[in-house]
């Protein structure tokens, strides 16, 4: 019994104290995966804000965009053109989703729309495997001018390794978020988007086309998916298993609130770092593999105290 208490409350901190460089490495790794979770969650938030749809297909959109990019390049298309064509594909996807699915499901209950996006997930998985094959692919890192290699930092005799691609991921994610924030607050379309998020009917009455806005939102989510796909693909590989990892965006959303962009980022970082630290320092007590459920349990505990998330709007219910 004493061993267990020591293992939970003392030993991990002793380890952290004794090897600060290793702790820093763990924190960095957690930070980077947290950014990727945040990016996936960002795609969810964009669509949820604008249309109240919980887009389950965001995960497969990440895989699909990555596959399209790699697949086009494998056909001999130069990288920049492949990137543009992938963007065009994501636009076509957004357009057809709006045309064929959303427009026909206006005013249905949330769960029906949610199920429709699961149906969309099935379609995208099937098409992705059909067109590009089910095997994992390597991201075209070099052709997209993404850095590879790593730098070493030695604070006080320790050793911390920074992969250049991770640094690039952090920078690009930051740029993307700043860009989105600018787009939302300064441009006309962005303001229309926020108006739609606020109140559908009021925005219709001042002449905002809902259909048009939905296409733009899904396209924006598609761009976020593409960036996530490139980054994740560069760190590991482009494969369909990413789709399950994308479910981790759910606890991130719960932490941050479903409608908050900064919430998605903070939530992503908390989950990413928390998960890594827990896995490394407390995981051995449970017999490893705790990464699979830790995020969900954290989210669950969190929900009991703050159901609307860190930055979510207060839930008010009326009869």
């Amino acid at each position: 019994m004493g061993d267990i208490i020591y293992g939970i409350f003392a030993d991990p901190f002793v380890q952290m104290w004794q090897m600060p460089d290793f702790l820093m490495q763990v924190l960095w790794e957690g930070f980077v995966s947290g950014i990727l979770y945040a990016l996936i969650a960002l795609g969810f938030v964009l669509i949820f804000k604008a249309s109240g749809i919980f887009n389950f297909a965001q995960g497969i959109m990440v895989v699909f965009s990555g596959l399209t990019l790699v697949g086009l390049h494998a056909l001999g298309v130069p990288a920049w053109l492949a990137l543009l064509l992938t963007l065009a594909t994501m636009y076509a996807l957004a357009y057809s989703v709006e045309r064929l699915i959303l427009r026909n499901l206006v005013n249905q209950p949330d769960i029906i729309l949610f199920m429709a996006t699961i149906g969309l997930t099935n379609i995208l998985i099937g098409m992705g495997q059909w067109i590009f094959g089910g095997e994992t692919k390597t991201m075209i890192t070099k052709e997209l001018f993404l850095p590879s290699g790593s730098s070493v930092w030695e604070p006080g005799g320790g050793l911390v390794i920074f992969q250049h691609i991770d640094i690039a991921a952090a920078v690009i994610a930051a740029a993307l978020i700043v860009g989105l924030a600018f787009f939302f607050s300064k441009t006309k379309v962005g303001r229309a988007l926020r108006a739609v998020a606020d109140d559908h009917q009021a925005s219709l009455s001042v002449g905002i086309s809902l259909n048009h806005i939905w296409v733009i939102t899904w396209f924006a989510a598609g761009i976020v998916a593409l960036v996530t796909g490139i980054m994740w693909g560069a760190r590991s590989d482009v494969s369909f298993s990413l789709q399950i990892i994308a479910l981790k965006a759910l606890p991130v959303l719960v932490l941050g609130g479903f409608t908050s962009v900064p919430g998605a980022i903070v939530g992503g970082l908390i989950i990413g770092i928390g998960e890594k630290v827990f896995e490394i320092y407390w995981g051995p007590l449970f017999g490893s593999g705790v990464e699979g459920w830790f995020a969900y349990v954290i989210a669950l505990v969190f929900l009991l105290y703050r159901p609307q998330g860190l930055f979510g709007e207060k839930i008010i219910e009326r009869v």
Binding site: L100, L105, Q108, G119, N122, G126
Partner: peptide
Amino acid sequence: IVMENVSLVAIGVMIVFILIKEP
């Protein structure tokens, strides 16, 4: 193998179709 993927797509289309036609 192709059929596996076709049936995935078909199930997806079917689900969306039924949801639209008869929620």
